[in-house]
Simulated scan of single mutants.
Amino acid sequence: METEPGTALVWLPPEVSHDMMFLIVKKGHLSNPGVGLQIDNYLRTLDADGKKALLVAKSPHGEPGLYMEMKYDHVLSIKAYWAMVMKSGLDDDDKQALLTAKSDKGISALRITFDSGNHDSMITYVELVLNSTFPDTVKQTMLASADNGKSIMPSQLGFDQEMVMLYKNAIMRSSLDEKVKESLLSEE
């Protein structure tokens, strides 16, 4: 019996299917250390293409697993997924693509947190990006969150204003280059 998310005893078969990975990620089960360990062990048996295919964990509708974790506010699972991708051995471009997590329609995982009003997921993701080893230009792309890679700020009108302020404050406090900050917070 699961008393809180991530505490259930879970057994996975030796090979994890893409559909199973999607369900694990969507339901926030990566926060369960046993699940994470089993998936880590399975990832070690895969080549780069196999790792990417499994880690994207896409739904039948084209939403990546991280996108779903953020939509449903699974903060601990978001952190576990991030760590899993970062230690996957994939190159930085693949890691960036997995961690930006755009749907087939081009909507990013960060954008879905704004649409869903999930403060904790948004702040967790922003902090993970800001504290990552990615160059500022990559961080800028990941934090832009608008469908076309431009700043999220022009479309802020429909968003929870507290959430917008949390985003702005995190960007302003960061060590990002001032021009990157300016671009991310631009109203254009």
Rank of each mutant, 00 (worst) to 15 (best):
T124Q: 04
I171E: 00
G50V: 09
G36Q: 13
L37V: 10
P135D: 15
S183H: 11
I39R: 03
D147N: 13
D47N: 15
L46V: 07
K51Y: 09
Q156K: 15
L130M: 06
L98M: 05
T100H: 02
V75Q: 08
E178C: 04
M142S: 00
Y42N: 10
K71S: 08
A80D: 05
H74C: 12
D177L: 07
F159W: 11
Y67L: 02
A109V: 03
L55K: 00
N118K: 14
T113F: 00
A170T: 01
E4T: 14
P60E: 10
I152D: 02
N169Q: 12
Q161M: 10
K168P: 00
P5N: 15
H74W: 09
G158H: 05
Y42C: 11
S31R: 11
G28S: 10
V75K: 07
A80C: 10
L128K: 03
I112H: 01
S174Q: 06
M86E: 08
K51A: 07
S132L: 07
L54Q: 09
L143G: 01
I107K: 07
K51F: 07
A144L: 03
D177H: 11
F159L: 11
A48V: 13
G117D: 04
T100Q: 07
M142P: 01
H74N: 14
L176D: 08
E2S: 15
S186F: 10
A53V: 07
A80I: 03
V25T: 07
H29W: 15
P5R: 15
N118R: 13
K139Q: 05
S186D: 12
D120E: 15
F22V: 00
L166P: 03
P33F: 08
L184R: 05
P135I: 13
L143I: 02
H29S: 09
A8E: 14
D49T: 13
E15K: 15
T113W: 01
G65E: 03
D147K: 13
E69G: 03
G89M: 11
I171F: 02
P33I: 05
A170E: 02
M86Q: 11
Q38L: 12
D147S: 15
S108L: 01
L128A: 03
N118S: 11
V35W: 04
A144T: 05
V180N: 04
A144C: 10
D92G: 04
G6M: 12
A8W: 02
M20E: 14
Y42L: 10
D49Y: 14
K168W: 04
D94E: 14
S175H: 09
L76D: 15
N169W: 06
V10T: 14
G149C: 04
G117S: 06
L143Y: 01
S121F: 00
L90I: 06
A53N: 14
V164Y: 05
A57V: 05
V56A: 06
K181V: 06
